[in-house]
């Protein structure tokens, strides 16, 4: 008989897998109460480090061509497909889902990546505009990514909710610090291994595990975060007040559906700013 390998997972910050600055972990158990793994309890300093990494990565990511970003997202879908069995096993372990249900969730997650990948070079064609103005100017409105986003994945979804949180943020050139579900973090941890091997520049997605309550106030008040998606948080009013201090965009819980394989353009646009350019026409 062989001994089980008791896993202790790590964080995903700046494309690397560091341990928590605090060294704290929590024990993850399945619905039967059995030990599954040790998971990092990220501290506010880990969140701060993740924001620094996200900020450093953002200019390079937005500077990549839209086509290139789409290819990277498509590559994530491919890599995720390659790890299907692991995702299915982990979803079943933590939620007690049947094999068919778990496979459906992985299908939806893969399809969501592909759906979002397609939008990278189409967002501006659909949402941008050429505005009529009274003067000899071209007047063009384009959508620009807002910058660094802090996001809280839905607490009750393993994989598809997480993917539907991350993909609409990064597809347009934002970088993200995402906090995984506290009770269902395994898919998020495995997803980091997918992200680390799929041409995504380090720091564009940073994944923290732990208690949403330990991290949310710090990320909501962090002055170098441009938007917060507070889907998976428990005290949204407090967070909105904190976010208002620095005029962050706030995406409220329930604002967008995150359970299917199709996202929404509004969800993508929620993390963008409109830039309008006046250009002289000549005569």
């Amino acid at each position: 008989m062989r001994l089980d390998v008791k896993k202790t997972y790590k964080l995903f910050i700046g494309g690397k897998f560091p341990r928590s600055e605090s060294g704290h972990t929590y024990e993850l158990t399945n619905p039967k109460g059995e030990f599954v793994a040790n998971v990092v309890l990220a501290s506010r300093k880990d969140a701060r480090d993740a924001v620094v990494a996200a900020r450093a990565a953002q200019s390079g990511w937005v500077g990549a061509t839209a086509y290139n970003r789409g290819q990277v997202l498509y590559r994530i879908a491919e890599m995720l497909e390659g790890r299907r069995e692991q995702f299915v096993a982990e979803i079943r372990e933590l939620t007690g889902a049947t094999e068919i249900q778990a496979n459906k969730e992985v299908d939806a997650a893969i399809d969501s990546w592909v759906w979002h990948a397609g939008w990278s070079d189409k967002v501006d064609s659909v949402a941008g505009s050429m505005n009529p103005v009274a003067g000899p100017f071209f007047n063009i409105s384009t959508n620009q990514p807002t910058g660094v986003v802090a996001a809280f994945a839905p607490q009750k979804s393993s994989l598809v909710g997480l993917v539907n949180t991350i993909a609409p943020i990064i597809v347009t050139g934002n970088s993200v610090v995402v906090v995984a579900s506290e009770s269902l973090p395994l898919s998020a941890i495995t997803l980091t291994e997918v992200l680390a091997t799929s041409d995504l520049p380090g720091g564009v997605v940073n994944v923290l595990t732990g208690k949403e309550k330990d991290l949310a106030p710090w990320l909501a008040s962090h002055q170098d975060v441009n938007a917060v998606d507070i889907e998976g948080t428990s005290d949204p009013v407090d967070l909105e007040i904190r976010a208002a201090e620095t005029l962050k965009r706030v995406i409220r819980p329930g604002a967008f559906s995150r359970s299917g394989s199709l996202g929404s353009l509004q969800h993508i646009l929620a993390f963008m700013e409109v830039k309008t350019v006046w250009h002289p026409k000549g005569h």
Partner: peptide, 14 residues
């Protein structure tokens, strides 16, 4: 310094 003063993490914009 700003972090210690305000309690919020600051950023390069400030």
């Amino acid at each position: 310094r700003q972090k210690l003063k305000t309690g919020n993490y600051s950023g390069p914009d400030y």
